[in-house]
């Protein structure tokens, strides 16, 4: 089985965000990057599917050369090969999806795994754009996945409840937290990852559709009022919630 997984890195979720000099992006100083947490679930699911059914897993990222540490992590987790595509200039989600779709056409995967979103931009676009461009059935918010005799079965979990979808292959699956527990990698895995092939490609010429014009911090919330200590503070808290905040 040929399995692809789309990944990228994001600033760590513990990062305090500052605005960069261009006023449109974050201040990169002091920011540490991690694999997008949802993409880690996607990698784990891809590797588990390979372990159950055989085949190989290719990870694809559209990111600059400094993303290589994060690609190595995917390879250490059990991905077999990786493709890194330089991002098109001012790339938005549509351009990144376009670059991924182009690469995926060559790969010809049976299953494409993605994270449901990246925790920085949080725009949920890339997986479903890729699927639409490739005319591939797709499910997102997936918390359970299995494939048997060429049919994929994916459970999506949202505010609507649980919905189980069945699809022929190829299929794109965008995963939600809870689908699995990503494996820890050891020294041996990291050493093995160094020997795995990484195919680096130039940026495709794809124009962005959405331009970021400004990035701002939200107005600081003025909290800090301490009502009191322990159970004695409860009546006053309730009075404030009713009379001042009118929240009860």
């Amino acid at each position: 089985m040929k399995i692809a997984v789309c990944v990228r890195r994001t600033p760590s979720t513990e990062t305090k965000i500052g605005i960069g000099g261009d006023g449109r992006s974050i201040d990169p100083s002091g920011v540490s990057y991690i694999l997008n947490p949802y993409d880690e679930f996607a990698i784990e699911e891809a590797v588990r599917t390979k372990e159950a059914h055989g085949g190989e897993v290719v990870a694809i990222t559209v990111d600059g050369a400094d993303a290589s540490k994060d690609i190595k992590k995917a390879l250490a987790m059990g991905v077999d090969t990786a493709i890194r595509i330089d991002p098109p200039a001012d790339a938005d989600s549509a351009a990144i999806a376009g670059a991924l779709a182009e690469a995926l056409r060559d790969v010809g995967p049976d299953i494409v795994f993605c994270g449901k979103m990246a925790v920085d931009e949080q725009d949920f676009q890339v997986p479903l754009r890729v699927a639409t461009m490739l005319e591939m059935p797709a499910v997102t918010f997936v918390t359970k996945f299995e494939v048997n005799d060429g049919t994929a079965r994916a459970t999506a979990e949202t505010e609507l409840g649980q919905t189980v979808y069945e699809s022929p292959l190829p299929v794109l699956v965008a995963v939600e937290k809870g689908i699995n527990e990503p494996r820890k990698t050891g020294i041996k895995d990291i050493m093995a990852a160094k020997k795995k092939p990484l195919d680096e490609r130039a940026a495709p010429a794809i124009a962005a559709k959405v331009a970021v014009t400004k990035l701002e911090l939200p107005p600081e919330k003025q909290g800090g009022k301490i009502v009191g200590e322990g159970v004695d503070a409860v009546p006053e808290l309730l009075r404030l919630l009713r009379e001042e905040a009118k929240a009860l």
Binding site: G223, K225, I226, G230, V231, A233, V234, P235
Partner: peptide, 26 residues
């Protein structure tokens, strides 16, 4: 507490039951 509009410094094991009871009464 820096973010909260209203803070209560106290043990959740004491404050929560008291809060629940008084809200039920309310």
């Amino acid at each position: 507490f820096k973010l909260a509009d209203y803070g209560v410094v106290g043990d959740v094991f004491e404050v929560l039951p008291a809060l629940t009871e008084q809200i039920r009464a309310l």
